[in-house]
Amino acid sequence: MDVFSYFNYWVVVVLMMLGFFIVIARGNLVKKLIGLNIFQTSVFILYISAGKVMGGAAPILADGVELYSNPLPHVLILTAIVVGIATTSVGLALVVRIHAAYGTVEEADILEQDATC
């Protein structure tokens, strides 16, 4: 078994966990969204790595090319990136509203304010 054959997947796991860590360990809501972004990108990397065929070319049909990488993950991730930015912006809009309502975007402060009233 070749160690490097799993390298991409391990990087995906590490990135995913780093993003996850930011989401649960940091109190700042904007930072949480950044962590979520990293998490999301790690999933993209997983899909794109799964679609790669060694020695394959980009999936644009051309004469004389026999082996292509898998186009299906590309399609899924292509749309997922744009959907991702759209949903991230919804999250950011909610952060802005939370800031307007509570005057802070720190999780601890928000919970404290919720507890007092």
Binding site: L33, I34, G51, I77, G84, I85
Partner: peptide, 23 residues
């Protein structure tokens, strides 16, 4: 490098441009 040129296009515009800007 993973042959996903279409995806790279989108990620370059979104990940390096639009999303940091919104943040």
């Amino acid at each position: 490098t993973m042959d996903a040129v279409d995806v790279a296009f989108t990620e370059a515009a979104v990940g390096a441009g639009v999303s940091p800007l919104l943040l």
